[in-house]
C-alpha cells in the first residue's frame, strides 16, 4: 500500500480493492489465490508456528521472556476472554474457538503492519528490480471479517438451540417481566402489541450484531491503514493540485504517520483481536445461558 517512492497519482482506497483484479492463481467460482489469501495463510502460519516453537523450545519453571509472553497471552485468552463470557459447560468447546480467534486475528492485524513485498510493483534501484514494500492487512477486508463473524453467529444460535431447545431458546430472547399475552382478556391487545414490538427489536438486534462485529474489525483496520497512508503520503496527495511545493507538509505528516503507525501496530491490533474474541465469547455464552 505505501510505496516507498510515492508518485503523484496515489489513491489510498484503490490499494484495498485492486488486489481482487490481480490474483496470483486464477481458479473458478471466485476462489482465486490473491494477496488477501496469501496474507491469510501467512497469519495462520504465524499463529500456529510461533506458539508451537516457543512450547517446543521447552517450558521451564523459571520462564524465559518468550514463555512469559505466551503465558500472558494464554491468561488473557482464558481469564479475560473465555471465563468472562462463557459458562462452565461451554468452556470445553468454545474456549479453544475464542482463543484461536484472539491469536489468529492478532497475528493477522500485526502482519498487516509489517512492510512486505507483495505489492506486485517494483522499482529500479542500482540497476536491480527491488519489489516495493507495502503494508496490507487481510482483516482490512470485509469478507474476512464477515466470515469470522458468521462463524460466531451460527455458533451462537446452534449452541443456544442445543442447550435450551428451540422453544426455550427463542423464548429467552423476550425479556422477562413483560405483561403476559392472554387472548380475550382486558389489556391483552396492548400486551400483544408490546410483545410484537419487542420481538421485532430483539430479532433485529441479533442481526445488528452481525454488522457491528464485522464492521468493527474491518473498519478499524481499514481506517488505521488509510490514516497511516494519508499522513505518510499527504505530500503526494496534495502535489496533484499544488505542485511539488506540497511535499513540504511531510515535515508534519511524516512524524504523525509514524506515531499513528506505532499506536495501531501495538495497541489497536491487539485490542481489536481481544474485542472480537471477547464479544464472541459473550454472545455464545449468552445463548447457552440466557440469563447469564
Amino acid at each position: 500500500m505505501l510505496s516507498l517512492l510515492a508518485t503523484s497519482d496515489f489513491n489510498p482506497v484503490s490499494e484495498f480493492t485492486d488486489f481482487i483484479n490481480h490474483p496470483y492463481v486464477d481458479l473458478p467460482l471466485g476462489l482465486d489465490i490473491n494477496k488477501g489469501v496469501v496474507y491469510l495463510w501467512l497469519s495462520a502460519a504465524v499463529a500456529i508456528l510461533v506458539p508451537l516453537l516457543i512450547i517446543r523450545k521447552g517450558l521451564k519453571a523459571k520462564p524465559s521472556r518468550w514463555q512469559t509472553f505466551l503465558e500472558m497471552v494464554y491468561d488473557t485468552a482464558y481469564i479475560q476472554i473465555a471465563k468472562a463470557g462463557l459458562p462452565e459447560e461451554g468452556m470445553r468447546i468454545w474456549f479453544p474457538y475464542v482463543g484461536t480467534c484472539f491469536i489468529f486475528i492478532w497475528a493477522m492485524n500485526v502482519i498487516g503492519f509489517i512492510p512486505l513485498p507483495f505489492s506486485g510493483e517494483s522499482v529500479q534501484l542500482l540497476g536491480v528490480d527491488v519489489p516495493k514494500l507495502q503494508i496490507y492487512a487481510a482483516s482490512a477486508n470485509l469478507s474476512v471479517a464477515l466470515t469470522l463473524t458468521l462463524v460466531t453467529f451460527v455458533a451462537t444460535h446452534v449452541e443456544g438451540i442445543r442447550y435450551n431447545g428451540v422453544v426455550g431458546y427463542f423464548k429467552s430472547w423476550i425479556p422477562a417481566g413483560l405483561p403476559p399475552v392472554r387472548p380475550l382478556r382486558a389489556g391483552s391487545v396492548g400486551a400483544a402489541i408490546l410483545f410484537g414490538l419487542i420481538a421485532v427489536v430483539e430479532v433485529l438486534s441479533q442481526f445488528v450484531r452481525l454488522v457491528s462485529l464485522s464492521f468493527r474489525l474491518f473498519f478499524n483496520m481499514l481506517a488505521g491503514h488509510l490514516v497511516i497512508a494519508v499522513f505518510l503520503g499527504v505530500g503526494a496527495l496534495m502535489a496533484a493540485s499544488l505542485g511539488n511545493a506540497a511535499f513540504a507538509v511531510h515535515i508534519i505528516g511524516f512524524p504523525m504517520g509514524v506515531a499513528l503507525y506505532l499506536l495501531e501496530a501495538t495497541l489497536i491490533a491487539a485490542l481489536q483481536a481481544y474485542i472480537f474474541a471477547a464479544l464472541s465469547a459473550i454472545y455464545i455464552g449468552g445463548a447457552i445461558h440466557p440469563e447469564h
Binding site: A84, F215, R216, F219, N220, A223, Y274, I275, A278, L279
Partner: peptide, 18 residues
C-alpha cells in the same frame, strides 16, 4: 477488561458513520 469492551463498542460508532 470491561473498559476495553466498552471502549470498543463506543469506538465502533465512528466506523458506522464512516
Amino acid at each position: 477488561g470491561m473498559m476495553w469492551l466498552g471502549f470498543a463498542l463506543t469506538e465502533a460508532i465512528v466506523f458506522y458513520a464512516l
